[in-house]
Design a binder for these strands. Structure first.
Lengths: 187, 187
DNA sequence: ACCTGAACACCGTTCAAGT
DNA sequence: ACCTGAACACCGTTCAAGT
């Protein structure tokens, strides 16, 4: 708040005439951001619609990782991003899920998405601070001395492996697993 | 730091003789916590071992939700919790995954787990502050006026639906989807 | 070694007072 | 209406000084 006020050339206290508190400001900022988001064309297939909507959630949030913690409490984005939730729930129902299963599917994808953003932005912050090499070496050292066979074997490659983007593949695996569960199919 | 020092009856500055900084203290605390964690019996089936290890990650973290943000940057827990990662990677490999696929599977489960803890603890905090009914009513109002058919239809039940625990079912769906993907099977 | 007070550089927020 | 300074109640951290 103080930094924003300084940048705007005003006293910190002035802000409180325009917003209730910090959370209110962040929420308004996020609503505004959601309003400006481009709305992708939705494909015909229900499964594909789910993937597009979840990817939209992910990509929108990637640009504003701090939003995850603001949204986590329950208010997802602004009204203009609610179509993502609608699309996922509708897609699940069109795939044969009950409403309950559809909500559970949405929640699962939201956890996965929120977690990916949280972990990736924290990792990037750490790389920016201490450098990628320092991180890679710390992981290598820890895994090598662990006496756990697979960790030791992967020690040298771990940092590089976890730096690859895996959101899309994980997403489609998760969606398939959830839809299959909804249809009552076993593993 | 100041609160902890006060509780210990010492000056805030005294702490800095025993830990490097706040992050160091949190990490030591977490390592100690990891050391005390009970180690579950692992089942024979590789898929079941993955589920047990992921559930151990989830349950351990549930008690210390603040840990998610400390761990997100890359250091998972202490050395004594590394067996969870090993178990998941080994289980995936035993199910026919390549090492790359096994690491991706682990990461997917970590995102899902971290996201669940983050969202659930934020939701609980909000309920504690403003009350469950206020939250339920806010969601209901927002979804009803949205003009999105499925959101409107679920408006009354949404808060109750998302309050149910869904980690275990989502986990097994995710694991199945990821293993199937590893085996190269389509949807 | 172990602990301290003083100090620095921050936060978010309230509120009476000014234009 | 709109903005302000003073103030409150906090943070994490450094560092020279004390025992």
């Amino acid at each position: 708040m103080r930094r924003l006020a300084a940048e705007a050339g005003a006293a910190p206290t002035t802000l409180y005439h325009h917003v209730r508190d910090k959370d209110d400001l962040l929420t308004q900022l996020l609503n505004d951001y959601a309003d400006r988001l481009p709305r992708p064309e939705l494909p015909d297939g229900p499964r594909e619609r789910i993937l597009v909507a979840a990817t939209a959630m992910h990509d929108s949030l990637s640009a504003v990782p701090w939003a995850v913690e603001v949204l986590a409490g329950g208010d997802f984005f602004g009204d203009s991003a609610l179509w993502m939730v609608e699309t996922i729930v509708r897609g699940a129902i069109d795939c044969g899920c009950t409403p309950e299963q559809a909500v559970d599917l949405y929640r699962g994808l939201w956890y996965y998405t929120a977690g990916e953003i949280l972990v990736r932005s924290a990792t990037e912050r750490r790389h920016a601070e201490r450098g990628y090499d320092a991180y890679a070496e710390a992981v290598r050292a820890r895994m090598s001395r662990s006496r756990l066979p697979h960790m030791s074997a992967l020690a040298d490659r771990w940092a590089a492996l976890v730096a690859r983007p895996t959101y899309p593949r994980g997403l489609s695996a998760f969606v398939d697993g959830l839809l299959r569960q909804g249809r009552g199919e076993g593993a």
